[in-house]
């Protein structure tokens, strides 16, 4: 009995140490953002600001157009989610429910395309976006990402788990394929669709490399690249930088606190089956 108690305590101890390590950077970011410049640059560092200040946030918003970046990020994420959502739902429906010649071959071909790293494609995609005259526009961060094989694959699997009889029943009730998709299949698949859109929003929000390549002017930056550009343009003032980082990270943290279970389960699913 005593040994059991000791084991339990050890488990909690290890978990707590690990958890603190994982969360510490976020904690440190937030604490630093609330300190004055003088307090940030002192040794030993203080675990809690002696003078609590929100000036760093105000300064960040004043020196760089973080409000604009934030809005851009929201717009880009929104259109990414809506457009990817539509193409994914339509394609997943065709692959799970419609009959057409060459379906299986086309699908396995698409799955094999998932192996291609996006980094490989930037060279030509950049040229394509330039040819379309979209360099330094928000569209440049939306248009290349309207179709996702991975999300289509996940949603098709979910659609396939919906019994055939519901489809036949709806058809007999007079519904066309289109009506069936939007009135029956999509409402039933709502949890799966929401999770996919959530993952999509997260990756859109955090995207760094591509937005860096296709945006030149301050007006069209999204948060991560805007944040990065902030240091090269205003010099390193860590208390301000940490305030800016907090602005970028906070929305995702809030999202994660509310949707943890579905995010985690879809990551687990996608990881092991994709």
């Amino acid at each position: 009995m005593k040994q059991l108690q000791f084991g339990k305590i050890l488990i909690y101890l290890l978990l707590i140490v690990g958890a603190i390590t994982m969360v510490f950077p976020f904690f440190w970011m937030f604490i630093s953002s609330l300190k004055t410049a003088a307090e940030v640059n002192t040794t030993p560092p203080t675990l809690w600001p002696s003078i609590l200040t929100f000036d760093n946030f105000i300064y960040a918003f004043e020196t760089a157009p973080f409000a604009r970046y934030f809005l851009n990020s929201v717009i880009v994420a929104f259109f990414n989610v809506v457009l990817t959502g539509i193409t994914t739902i339509l394609a997943a429906f065709a692959f799970s429910r419609l009959k057409f010649p060459g379906k299986e071959v086309l699908f396995s071909l698409l799955l094999s395309l998932m192996m291609i790293p996006f980094e490989m494609l930037i060279i030509t995609n950049y040229t394509t976006i330039a040819d379309l005259g979209l360099i330094d526009t928000l569209s440049a961060m939306i248009i290349p990402f309207t179709s996702s094989i991975f999300y289509t694959y996940i949603l098709r699997n979910f659609f396939q788990s919906i019994p055939d009889s519901l489809y036949h029943s709806a058809r007999i009730d007079g519904a066309s394929n289109w009506k069936y998709l939007w009135k029956i299949m999509v409402p039933i698949a709502k949890p799966a669709i929401i999770t996919i859109l959530l993952l999509n929003a997260i990756s859109s929000w955090n995207a760094f490399m591509w937005p860096m390549l296709v945006t030149n002017t301050t007006n069209n930056r999204t948060l991560p690249f805007g944040l990065y550009a902030f240091i090269s343009e205003s010099g390193v003032r860590y208390e301000v930088l940490m305030a800016a980082s907090t602005i970028v990270i906070l929305p995702m943290v809030i999202l994660f606190l509310f949707m943890r279970k579905s995010i985690v389960s879809s990551v687990a699913q996608g990881g092991t089956k994709g």
Partner: peptide
């Protein structure tokens, strides 16, 4: 038509 498993729309 009435199906063997009834095929009622669950939502």
């Amino acid at each position: 038509m009435v199906f063997q498993n009834y095929a009622l729309y669950p939502h």
